[in-house]
């Protein structure tokens, strides 16, 4: 009976995951491997393609007639960042006004990323509320768990969208190359590289969406976040989800040695990535005079 309960919990969290997160790993991997029919993503690999694709960033549906002519063929081998033609990127620009508009374009792109992140926080919040017992916790503790867990969750959610050459954005409709992100001005260029390094390693664990759902719940239910008022019920909830995750991994990945232990180790790496990320955002606030941080993200990052 206990195993049946743990399986029911896994199913429940998987359903919530599918309900609240618009781009699943299954769909993302199909896009990245070129197996989703004719719908290759629009590729952003330099300033010119960013300018062309800018209007579609964060659109859930790119208008087909506008999208298609500009789509750079991803090729049968899937989406990669190579062989995409001459580099017209920021490094090639010498004109001062061109440089100025590139700077503004980068800042606008950063603001789009912030909007999507804020929407992501909303999605994660809805997912958290679906974890059995979560909404019965002290409301202040719910806030604390989200404040400390949500960036970790968003980083994990990014991994399935990435390969070594780039990442899907805009609900899977745009592929942005890693090289292009690295070519942006400091500190923008430093923001994504640690996430790529983490994701490429994380993806070798080959979790599927049902495993991911449980892992995200485990992260959210961390009883060691600073300022929690009532730790015990959180730890009890996490314990149950951990059991469910352990059973799920045994059934779903019978040949993967020590997968459960390997996954738990990733939680330590994640904390360092979030610390570095918040540090970069604080740096940005000092260096970019025109930057305004989204109020929800400000709330989350303040005193983190």
């Amino acid at each position: 009976p206990e195993a049946a309960d743990l399986r029911a919990l896994a199913r429940h969290l998987y359903e919530a995951y599918l309900k609240y997160f618009p781009l699943t790993k299954a769909k993302a991997r199909a896009i990245l491997s070129g197996k989703n029919g004719d719908n290759a993503p629009f590729v952003i690999h330099d300033m010119k393609s960013l300018m062309e694709g800018e209007q579609f960033i964060n659109c859930r549906q790119i208008p087909i007639q506008e999208h298609q002519p500009q789509t750079l063929s991803a090729g049968l081998g899937g989406v990669t960042g190579v062989h995409l033609g001459p580099d017209c990127g920021i490094l090639g620009m010498t004109n001062i006004s061109e440089q100025g508009s590139a700077d503004a374009l980068e800042l606008r792109f950063f603001h789009s990323c912030q909007s999507r992140s804020a929407e992501g926080v909303r999605e994660v919040t809805e997912f958290a509320k679906s974890i059995p017992g979560f909404i019965n916790l002290d409301l202040n503790d719910q806030v604390t768990l989200l404040k400390y867990g949500v960036i970790e969750v968003l980083i994990i959610m990014m991994a399935p969208l990435m390969n070594k050459d780039g990442t899907l954005i805009s609900y899977g409709q745009i592929f942005m190359t890693r090289e292009f992100l690295k070519s942006l001005r400091k500190p923008f260029c430093q923001m994504m590289e640690p996430k790529f390094e983490f994701s490429v390693k994380f993806n070798t664990l080959e979790l599927d969406d049902s495993d991911m759902a449980l892992f995200l719940a485990v992260i959210i239910l961390s009883g060691d976040r600073p300022g929690l008022l009532n730790v015990k019920p959180i730890e009890q909830l996490q314990e149950t989800v951990l059991h469910s995750l352990e059973l799920q991994l045994k059934l779903n990945h019978p040949d993967s040695v020590q997968l459960f232990a390997k996954l738990l180790q990733k939680m330590t790496d994640l904390r360092q990535i979030v610390t570095d990320h918040v540090h970069l955002i604080q740096l940005l606030k000092k260096t970019e005079v025109d930057m305004c941080l989204h109020p929800l993200l400000q709330e989350i990052m303040k005193d983190l």
């Binding site: 409301l139 202040n140 806030v143 989200l146 109020p295 929800l296 709330e299």
Partner: peptide, 20 residues
């Protein structure tokens, strides 16, 4: 509570849209 106003809103309003 004031410090995390939007998070509180997100947690408490399950159906009403929150202005993000």
């Amino acid at each position: 509570k004031e410090k995390h106003k939007i998070l509180h809103q997100l947690l408490q309003n399950s159906t009403s849209p929150v202005d993000l």
